Amino acid sequence: MSINLLTYDNLKIFCEAAFHRFGFNEHDSAVITDVLLLADLYGIDSHGTNRIVMYHDQIRAGYIDIGAKPLIVSETPVSAVIDGMSGMGQLVSKFAMKKAIALAKTSGIGLVTVRNSNHYGIAGYYSLMACNEGFLGISMTNSLAAVVPTFGRVPMLGTNPFAFSFPAVPQPFHFDASTSVVTVGKAEVSGKTGKALPVGWGINADGYDELDPSALLRGIYAGTAGLHPLGGGTEEHGGHKGYGFSMVVEILSSIMSGGTTSNHVEKEEGKSGVCHFFAAIDPKIFGNPAVIQNKLEIFLEELRNSMKADGKDRIYTHGEKEAESYTRRIEEGIPVNEKTVEEMKDLADYLKMDFYRYFPELKI
């Protein structure tokens, strides 16, 4: 399976045009594209350009209401509950994190939980919104059930990612990860590139390891197979901890918002029901923000400079790989696998867009 290097600028223009053809206005198309391409730039290929066809399918299925506007259902000086009104997840989530940041600016902390939304892209986009304001940022979401509980065989939980960002120099501490061994998107990418799944990613309907990505994905969408929680399928390697972390995300997003738990997401015709949670915390409620940040920066440097394992020459702190990938991909291009390019070409044809006008380098 070949890989094509596409420039950030060309991908940005294409994605914005495609979302505009979907029916979004120019501003909203730019916001959605910004979230997707940050994933690509950070090296999170499962949540970037790879997702554009999925969003189109969800719009056609009625899950996403293009014209929806999120509604604040209730509010206190430090919290809010928002109904996403079946809107595009990126638009709902940016609105929600802006609300959390506004609350934090006046009260020191902002906690916002969201119901009735859709897939929102990478969790870290929103935690970084708060971080860029000098705040601690947290972002979580549930999703379509794709993960089996420890000792279970039927998917009951989403991949339920968690992102945490805190200001630091030379780059923020930025942790963004699913509470499952991997995301559904990584299994999709494996299928597109023709790679078998590693042992331990997920199980089939018979309860055994599934190595065929297409079979695993079919089982996930049929509710008969699933990914393992972070730590794997046994307690010996801590799978129960990933299961517990996933439940924390579920409680803060779907339970606290009065929304839909992962096992009921996309089960009602024309409604997704994805739920999110966002937090922005001003460090000044704990002390001098500059002193707190400096203490973190010292610790991060001590981590990077600590003794390396045999054969290893570097210890990364969270956010470094993403920052380096961002710089490299802006300069060299974003790698997009052949299958995703084919999907984008088919979508462009469907939308009556001249695909090769956006990507002349791909014209044969």
Rank of each mutant, 00 (worst) to 15 (best):
S165Q: 05
T159H: 09
H119D: 12
G134V: 06
P172K: 14
I203L: 13
M129S: 04
G137S: 13
V154F: 13
A145V: 06
D209Y: 12
G191A: 12
L197S: 05
A130P: 04
A177T: 14
N204T: 05
P198S: 15
A145K: 01
F166G: 01
Y120G: 00
G194M: 15
D209G: 11
V147Q: 08
T150R: 07
Q171P: 00
H174T: 11
S127M: 07
V182K: 01
Y208P: 00
S143C: 14
F162W: 06
S180Y: 02
K186H: 12
E188I: 08
V169G: 08
P198Q: 14
P161K: 01
N142L: 03
A145C: 13
K192Q: 14
G121A: 11
G134L: 13
F175K: 07
M156Y: 13
P161G: 06
S190F: 12
P155C: 10
F162M: 12
G158Q: 03
A177Q: 07
N142V: 02
H174W: 13
V147K: 03
T150L: 15
I138D: 02
V169M: 12
Y208N: 15
V181D: 00
F173R: 04
T159I: 11
M156K: 13
N160L: 05
P170T: 07
S139D: 11
L197F: 10
V169S: 15
G194I: 12
P161V: 06
T150E: 07
